[in-house]
């Protein structure tokens, strides 16, 4: 990282893009060094999905009815639990302050961090969902929509969740508070995500729902980086 740190003193002409790629690759490299940790959300997802047939009923007909909601809620919780690690490490070793002091705009760097989070949790969760869906006897024909809705939706979850993580990163016991702040904001994604899967099961087009998920993603891509950057500044000043 020393090369890019030296470059930060004299901002190059395409500073923001370069800083984005540097932060992204640094985040990915760190994540690959801790492969075990990256698996945790997936294991959590599988465990929660296992609990429901045990807690409710092994009856496939019943499970098929509640499967879209269960798969979505469990993925949402898995993404939520991984939020705490999003800025925590960088906050504790001081690299977050370096990001804020860097001449490049903070929102590009936070966007890179959110990208890393999505690549390490949202995308794997979405890709593993069809596997868990077979355990819950999700009706055939909705698997592709399930994955696609999770890919789109989890990106929004990462962006919105990062706001909560940034607001609470400076607090010693931010864990439960983050959930309290973020879960109400997750509801639209949950509604349209499960809506897409249920439409596919009913034989209707899931396209409107996926389009709305895409719109939510576009909106949060536009506004969330600003809010994350502002929140990080607040957390580090306090």
């Amino acid at each position: 990282m020393s090369a890019s740190d030296g470059g930060a003193l004299r901002p190059p002409p395409h500073g923001a893009g370069r800083a984005f790629i540097a932060t992204l690759s640094r985040g990915l490299r760190l994540a690959f060094r801790r492969r075990g940790e990256a698996l945790n959300p997936l294991v959590f997802y599988a465990l929660v999905i296992t609990l429901f047939p045990i807690g409710i009923s092994p009856d496939p007909a019943l499970l098929a009815v509640i499967a879209p909601g269960l798969l979505w809620v469990a993925a949402l919780l898995a993404a939520l639990l991984s939020l705490d690690t999003l800025f925590r490490g960088d906050f504790e070793d001081g690299s977050l302050e370096q990001l804020i002091l860097a001449p490049q705009p903070l929102w590009t760097q936070t966007l890179a961090k959110v990208c890393v989070h999505w690549l390490m949790t949202g995308l794997p969760l979405a890709l593993s969902a069809p596997l868990l869906a077979t355990l819950l006897a999700l009706p055939a024909g909705s698997y592709a929509v399930l994955t696609l809705s999770l890919v789109l939706g989890s990106a929004t979850l990462s962006l919105v969740g990062a706001i909560g993580a940034a607001l609470t990163v400076g607090l010693a016991r931010g864990g439960v508070l983050t959930s309290l702040l973020i879960l109400p904001l997750y509801i639209p994604v949950l509604v349209f995500g499960t809506g897409a899967v249920e439409a596919a099961i009913a034989g209707q087009s899931a396209l409107p729902y996926l389009a709305i998920l895409g719109a939510l993603l576009a909106l949060s891509l536009m506004l969330a980086p600003w809010a994350i950057a502002a929140s990080l500044r607040i957390s580090l000043n306090g």
């Binding site: 706001i163 702040l181 607040i234 306090g238």
Partner: peptide, 22 residues
Amino acid sequence: ALRGAFSSRQSGARAASVLAMV
């Protein structure tokens, strides 16, 4: 809860403001 969680009033106020706008 967010406003109350900060020990500094200024930080709590700004954090709660961001959350209210979001």
